[in-house]
Computed example of a mutant assay.
Amino acid sequence: MLGDSITAGFGLARGEGPPARIEALLRARGRPVRVLDAGVSGDTTAGGRARLEWALADRPHAVIVALGGNDGLRGLTPAQMRGNLVAILDALARRNLPVLLAGMIAPPNLGAEYGREFAAVFSDLARDRPDIVFYPFLLEGIAGDPALNQPDRIHPTARGAQLLAERILPAIETLLDRVRPL
């Protein structure tokens, strides 16, 4: 799971972040998987792009790309984000790795036009690449709920991370069904 502080489980105990919660849910469903946490707090899509080779060193069989939140928090242009995500998706395609792209929504303080352009990056990539699994908003049902977020109102609590894992699980199972047998 290539991501940022959400993936890394910022502010949570070891084992409470989304990768660990996703792994536990999949194992409970009889899928003997290991979900690698390739989340780095503060990472933008550019950071994810720069460390992609490092993240692939463990030779994953599929990749969840969960980047973009920090691009929005820093007000980086949607065009920059798109370029970085395209480069990441192209690199993964060259390796024939199945991909799940988890979308993000821009903070509202950047304006409606920025928000539309930002969201369109994810939906356009999903439309243009029918081979990827698309989950439109990583924090669906979690963002904005004080009971599911830490005091910073950005990072999920342990319960929020569990809910994130539960909600994205069907998309991840679709992703896993695309993994080629070894």
Rank of each mutant, 00 (worst) to 15 (best):
L101F: 11
A119D: 02
P98I: 02
D128V: 06
A93R: 15
M104T: 01
A102E: 14
G115E: 10
A112H: 11
V99N: 11
A126P: 07
L110W: 12
L110R: 15
G115Y: 02
N96F: 14
R95W: 07
A93N: 12
L125Q: 05
P108C: 04
A126R: 07
L101K: 05
L125G: 03
R94A: 15
L97I: 08
L125K: 04
R127A: 12
R94N: 14
R95P: 13
A102G: 13
N96V: 14
N109C: 02
L110A: 12
E117H: 11
E113N: 06
A112W: 07
V121M: 09
G103Y: 02
A102H: 09
P108T: 00
A106M: 05
F122H: 01
R116Q: 09
N96D: 15
A126T: 07
L125I: 05
F118N: 12
L110Q: 13
S123V: 10
L125D: 01
F118Q: 06
D128Y: 04
E113W: 00
R116M: 09
R127E: 09
L100D: 08
A106R: 04
R94F: 14
L97W: 04
G115Q: 12
G115R: 11
R95C: 11
G103W: 02
A93H: 14
N109G: 03
R127Q: 10
Y114A: 06
R95S: 13
P130N: 10
R95A: 14
E113P: 01
